[in-house]
């Protein structure tokens, strides 16, 4: 095996930060070619640190790293996109952090996954441009499940492969997707999804995030999707994502700004 170079460059999205010792931090980075990895930034918590602002979570940065014995060490960092509009908005920060947590928890270190990097970038960019947080999170959940090999079966019954009638249908995480009425008894727990919700999920699976952003989802439908997908994500993650609680706490705040909330319109754009 050829010797790896001592220093290397990559771009990456900072997923999270943990403090280490007096002035150092460990950052978890999602990169296009090396997947997720942890690296140390020395002295980054001192006020005059040159890297501090370039390594904030949810920042896309150009990074220079030196190979370390256990963890690599950041030697330079420069912001590519700071996603300021996300930072300045509580709902969008909460959703972006939730997506970052899923990206962190669904992956193992150094497992190359360019698709996930593209997805994370697309979601951050959409949120930064004002995409509604709820539907954007649903899009991310559905897509990351596919990328991790847990693609939901939405076209036929996940148990018997039979045809699905256009009626309320069970979404069962343990069966791996929608389950027809006859198989419902033997499928595991799940949520019943209405026809509108199923159409939205099918549509989200097949289009890019910009097209999905055009779909108008009312509050009832958004809630139906959120609850159903929360069950699916927790099932495959085998735990509850920690940041979900924060997303809920933010949603419960008084004076939720309505400027970004989608209008109440039927989603008739699905296939």
């Amino acid at each position: 095996m050829p010797e790896r170079p001592r220093a290397y460059k990559t771009e990456g999205i900072i997923l999270r930060r943990r403090n280490l010792g007096e002035a150092d931090s460990i950052f978890t980075v999602l990169s296009p070619r090396q997947g997720k990895f942890d690296a140390i930034a020395k002295g980054v918590r001192k006020p005059r640190s040159r890297m501090r602002g370039h390594l904030e979570p949810l920042t896309r940065s150009r990074l220079l790293l030196a190979r370390g014995r256990s963890l690599d060490v950041f030697t330079q960092a420069e912001t590519i996109t700071p996603y300021r509009a996300i930072r300045d908005d509580l709902e969008r920060s909460a959703t972006a952090l939730y997506c970052a947590e899923l990206a962190d928890r669904f992956t193992i270190e150094h497992a190359d996954n360019p698709g996930l990097y593209e997805l994370m970038l697309a979601v951050l960019e959409a949120l930064d441009l004002g995409a509604p947080p709820g539907p954007t999170a649903r899009y991310f959940e559905l897509q990351i499940l596919s990328l991790m090999g847990y693609e939901l079966q939405l076209d036929c019954c996940a148990a018997c492969r039979g045809r699905l009638e256009p009626v309320e249908t069970l979404l069962s995480p343990s069966a791996g997707g929608l389950v027809c009425e006859r198989c419902r008894a033997k499928a595991g727990a799940g949520r019943l999804l209405g026809v509108r919700a199923i159409k939205v999920l099918r549509y989200a699976r097949n289009v890019d995030i910009a097209a999905f952003g055009e779909v108008r989802i009312d509050a009832v439908l958004a809630n139906e999707l959120e609850v159903a997908m929360a069950g699916v994500v927790s099932h495959f993650l085998e735990r509850e994502p920690r940041s979900r609680h924060f997303v809920e706490a933010v949603a419960a705040l008084p004076g939720r700004p309505n400027a970004l909330a989608p209008e109440i319109v039927r989603s008739d754009q699905g296939p």
Binding site: E56, R87, D88, L90, S93, L97, V250, P254, G255
Partner: peptide, 18 residues
Amino acid sequence: PSLEGEATAMYVQRLLAP
């Protein structure tokens, strides 16, 4: 002025708005 600090500030601001 970090992501966590900003989120905390915005959260408190929204909570106290009424």
